[in-house]
């Protein structure tokens, strides 16, 4: 009897331990974000650093984003046409493709690709810096690694993501137009006209951009935090990189639901 109680107590203790660990990590990540952003504006660690980070995070993600956007748009065109033609309303194809991309797929798929393409690289880079003791060296020299390494990367992600998401949606809409108009024979005027009649600049385009701003911040935050907090061994870095992709993807999908619910105003 006593043994049983002991076992129950043990498992409760394990649960408490795990929750405290999680909470602690969350707190560390929060303090980490605040103290990196405390250093102020995007250019605070030197503009050159920011440009370099936007280059490696944003510009170099451009090709994957554009190719992915074009294919997603083409698939939406095909699928949408098949569904809409059942109701005899192929003319609404432009509306369907553009609203799907602007409201959901643009921000979300871009963020997922971004987490895989740029987030993992960020984590591995910072993790390796830690493993090779560059970060400790900086601290020894009296340079704050948060300000020097983390701040420009956070800002670069924050700036790059909305641009990438916008280009993703734009290319996707053209992909949908290509398939719909040239291959399936949807009327060109109907495609663009119905789209223009139903897409709202603020409600669809700006709200989509707000979503991608949030995703940009969250994904880069998770990536740099995982790198900074990793165990500085080869195993620790590989674990941190995996964690980045998994946690960032889940965070994006979860946040997307919350943001959509707030924006549609139904909760």
């Amino acid at each position: 009897m006593l043994k049983l109680i002991d076992k129950i107590l043990d498992s409760i203790q394990a649960l408490g331990n795990a929750s405290l660990g999680r909470l602690q990590a969350l707190g560390r990540a929060g303090v980490f974000l605040l103290s990196s952003l405390m250093w102020g504006g995007p250019g605070s660690a030197g503009f050159g650093d920011l440009v370099k980070q936007i280059y490696s995070i944003g510009v170099r993600s451009l090709s994957i984003i554009i190719v992915a956007g074009f294919f997603v748009g083409m698939v939406l065109g095909l699928q949408g046409y098949t569904i809409l033609s059942d109701f005899g309303s192929e003319a609404a194809l432009g509306t369907m493709v553009s609203l799907t991309l602007l409201r959901e797929l643009g921000p979300v798929v871009t963020a997922l690709l971004f987490a895989g393409r740029a987030g993992s690289a960020l984590t591995a880079e910072i993790g390796l810096m830690k493993a090779t003791e560059q970060i400790s060296a900086m601290e020894m020299m009296g340079v704050d690694p948060l300000k020097r390494i983390i701040t420009p990367r956070l800002w670069a992600g924050f700036i790059s993501m909305p641009i990438l998401a916008l280009l993703f949606s734009l290319v996707g809409i053209w992909g949908g137009a290509y398939v719909g108009i040239n291959m399936l024979g949807v009327d060109e005027g109907a495609y663009w006209g119905n789209m223009q009649a139903s897409v709202e600049f603020y409600d669809d385009i700006i709200k989509g951009l707000i979503k991608s701003l949030v995703f940009g911040l969250v994904v880069t935050w998770i990536a740099v935090y995982q790198g900074f907090d990793s165990i500085p061994t080869s195993e620790g870095i590989s674990k941190a990189t995996t964690q980045t992709v998994v946690v960032a993807s889940l965070a994006v999908l979860g946040l997307d639901f919350v943001l959509t619910a707030i924006m549609l105003g139904s909760i």
Binding site: G58, S98, P162, L170, W192, Q196, I205
Partner: peptide
């Protein structure tokens, strides 16, 4: 990087004019 940011701005303008009308 400059071209990237210009692309973003042009994208937004095209989006506003061509997509949202």
């Amino acid at each position: 990087v400059g071209a990237f940011i210009v692309m973003g701005i042009i994208g937004l303008i095209v989006m506003a004019l061509r997509v949202s009308g």
